[in-house]
Structure formats: C-alpha cells, structure tokens
Write a protein that binds this DNA or RNA. Sequence first.
DNA 1: TAAACTTAGTTACATAAAGTAAGTTATTAA
DNA 2: TTAATAACTTACTTTATGTAACTAAGTTTA
Lengths: 106, 106
Amino acid sequence: MNQPTICPKFEKAISLLSQRWTALLIYQLLSGSQRFKDIQSAIGISGKVLSDRLKELEHKDVVKRVVIPETPVVIEYSLTEKGKSIEPILRTIENWSQQWVTQESE
Amino acid sequence: MNQPTICPKFEKAISLLSQRWTALLIYQLLSGSQRFKDIQSAIGISGKVLSDRLKELEHKDVVKRVVIPETPVVIEYSLTEKGKSIEPILRTIENWSQQWVTQESE
DNA sequence: TAAACTTAGTTACATAAAGTAAGTTATTAA
DNA sequence: TTAATAACTTACTTTATGTAACTAAGTTTA
C-alpha cells in the first residue's frame, strides 16, 4: 500500500524508448538525415515496421520527413530538436554497453 | 553501401533495455529489493510477463532472487552490481522526460 | 521502346510476444 | 474447515512483428 507511483512523464519516455526499433532508429538518425532504404538496411528493420515507426515518431515530433522535389522525388528523414535531445540518453547507453556488455552474455 | 555497422554491444544493450517492461522493472528495483506482488502492483505488469522478465534478468545477472527461509518463505528481488550500473541511464531518461514529455504528447 | 530496376511504401498472411483470467502449491489466519 | 495470500504456471486471446509479394512512379539497360 502507498507505493510511490511512477512519474507519468517518465513512464511515457520509457514507453517511447522501449518500443522495439525506436531507440535504434533515433540512434541511426543521429548521423544525419537519411532515406527510407538506407535506414532499413542500416538497422535491419522490415519496411512495414519502419513505416509505422517513422509515422509514430513524426507524429510525436521526434522525426521530420522532408520531401525533396527532385526527379525522382527523394524523401529524407531526420531528427527534430526533440529527437536530437535524445542523444545524451543513447550516449549513456553506449557507454554502459562498453563497460557491461560482454560477447558471451546473451 | 559501406554503412558503418552499429556496434554489437550497443545493440545488445538496446535490445535489453527496449524489451517491454525491462527498464521500468529495473527502475522500480532502484528503490530497493522487493517482492513479486509489490513489483507487480507498482508497475502494473502481468504475473506472467513479470515472471518471464525476472528469469531473463536473473540469467543476465541484472537481478538477483533471494529466498528468505521464514515461514512462509519470502522471495526478494533486487539489483546486482550490473543492475545498479544501469541507474545513470534511467536517470538520464528521467531528466529528459521532465524537459521534453508533455501531458498532451501521446 | 519494352524489360528490368529503384524508391517508398502497402497489403495479406504467419509467427511471436504480451495480456487475461483461472488454476496450483504451500502456508497461515479466522 | 473455509478462506486468504504469495509466487507462480497454464490455457487461451489479442496485439505486435516478420516475411514476402505487390504497387506506382520514374529510370536505366538492351
């Protein structure tokens, strides 16, 4: 009884970042704007789920979709300010992984 | 072509932390060792998935399970050193959530 | 000019993960 | 004796993800 309840903002952040592929996708976009196919082959996500995630993240103002009207049209995905603000989280995970993740650890 | 491949240690860390419930469960255990039912009611996870997660995290040396031979027997779950080392990641997420997560943002 | 290829997706179907609710075993309380 | 609690497990349903084929628009190749 009287468990201190988990902060709803924190829970939202966790539910965003712990959705499969989301963190890896944001990490991938840290290196600059990229096209659908490039993201797909870089992180090994299926087209279907990538399409879903990009829509969700666009909706949440983490990713922006830019249509470049060349012929043929090019679509570039990049991080918004909010998206870029996630970098420190991913760097902290990166550091942790170097210290604590071993090859054999499943 | 020639995409710099994502570091496998980082990918492992991400796949650990972005499994549903895992980050929240570790966060919950930051406040000290707790029993099955307490964790369950604190974070709202089903018994089935909590049971799975605890086993996985025990196997990965993130959580330890201690049987206290009182009558009735009490089982306490707590973080190992490796588990505790995840705290900075969760604090970074906590900070980020305070700055960037709004009520209306789905 | 037709056939094949590329990008940025979508659709239909299959499998895996998670949720729900009831059941289990052991113990203790009324 | 009946009921209750803790820590799970099992069976079943729903949701998420993966696979692979398909599409539309334009482009390169033969």
